[in-house]
């Protein structure tokens, strides 16, 4: 057994090393692409900063100040040199360090995405389990129809539907912002939701949830449908396997058989897909945060693009790329934990 555990540790370290290396290469590629693209598209950040009527000389002076008059390769070299030392440059619009701005907004987007993921897993999982339990019946048909509807409408339209339902017709949730501005926040980090729980401030927690609920649900609905459909399909296939039949002869009821025997084996294909889809969900926060005026990374990204705030755009895109690769790594590790056959490979 000792030898076995040693092997698992080695395999884990090797996986981690390979992933870190590929991550570095991926991020370098992303950096190059973003750097080039945002400088090729029309729109001059300097022109946006200066009042109307500024002279060519003013523009040239300010361009030189930000290094924008240098050749592209030199600009990239300067930027990369800074990044290596943890300096992502200074935002052109707010004149604050990009790293501080981006990390300040990251917790809001992470909390929103994770809440959406939890909702999607709960909703999709419930749909899949109910559909499997009552397969072949009318209830499975109803779940299939609901899944189809959830899938065929994109997240931002669900956002509008939710605003109409829970913001206008039956106003139980806040339609904009992250937290009510009147509240006094005792938080030291920007993970408000998490910290409100740690500090046992359930009044603040409730207010945060009332703000997050609709944007999170809008993001969750399409993912929930995907989880529900795929998990139900693999559960139904698993339910026909020999070990499930054997468990039935032992006296287990249908629900116990689904949860005990089938679920853990059926969940693996869904897990891979959820990893991929979760990165799409994080991408979806850009529009959803705008829609609900939620002060996260996505909302900041749109402002940065409108203002041609090149350093900030770069910083945000790199951060999104880091998040995406981290999600993929977590999925791979979870897969190995859930599938004993992979642990020894």
């Amino acid at each position: 057994m000792g030898q076995c555990r040693h092997g698992v540790g080695m395999a884990f370290l090797r996986l981690l090393a390979i992933r870190l290396l590929t991550t570095a290469i991926t991020l370098a590629g992303v950096a190059v692409i973003v750097f080039v693209v945002i400088r090729v598209v029309p729109g001059n950040p300097i022109a946006m900063m200066l009042p109307p009527g500024a002279t060519e000389a003013d523009i040239a002076r300010l361009s030189a100040l930000y290094g924008l008059d240098q050749p592209l390769v030199t600009q990239f070299g300067i930027w990369l040199g800074g990044v290596m030392q943890g300096d992502f440059g200074t935002s052109i619009t707010s004149r604050q360090p990009v790293l501080d701005l981006v990390l300040g907004r990251l917790p809001a987007t992470l909390e929103l995405s994770i809440m959406a993921l939890v909702m999607a897993v709960i909703l999709g999982g419930a749909a899949a389990l109910t559909g499997t339990r009552f397969r072949g019946g009318r209830r499975e048909g109803a779940i299939d129809v609901a899944n189809g509807m959830a899938l065929s409408v994109p997240d931002f339209l669900w956002g509008l539907v939710l605003i109409l339902l829970f913001g206008v017709l039956w106003p139980v949730f806040h339609i904009s912002g992250r937290v009510s501005p009147a509240l006094d926040l005792p938080f030291t980090t920007n993970f408000y939701l998490f910290e409100s729980l740690i500090r046992l401030r359930f009044d603040l927690w409730a207010d945060l949830v009332a703000h997050m609920f609709m944007p999170a649900l809008a993001l969750a609905i399409p993912l929930a449908a995907i989880i529900g459909q795929l998990l139900k399909q693999s559960l139904k296939e698993t339910m026909n396997l020999d070990y499930v039949t054997l468990a039935r002869t032992k006296g287990y009821g249908e629900t116990r058989v689904i949860l005990r025997e089938a679920l853990r084996n059926a969940i693996l294909p869904t897990l891979t897909l959820v990893g991929v889809q979760f990165t799409f969900l994080i991408g979806g926060t850009v529009i959803i945060e705008r829609l609900f005026s939620y002060e996260g990374l996505g909302n900041m990204a749109i402002d940065a693009v409108i203002n041609r705030d090149l350093p900030l755009i770069q910083g945000i895109v790199i951060l999104f790329a880091v998040i995406f690769t981290a999600v993929n790594l977590i999925v791979d590790l979870l897969y190995a934990v859930l599938n004993p056959r992979l642990r020894h490979a």
């Binding site: 396997l241 020999d242 054997l246 039935r248 002869t249 006296g251």
Partner: peptide, 23 residues
């Protein structure tokens, strides 16, 4: 189901597929 589980058992045909791979 309870009665069958308590008094009967099955020896299945294919040992390779009759054990749950995750347990």
């Amino acid at each position: 189901r309870r009665r069958i589980g308590a008094t009967c058992a099955l020896i299945p045909q294919d040992p390779l597929t009759a054990l749950n791979p995750s347990h």
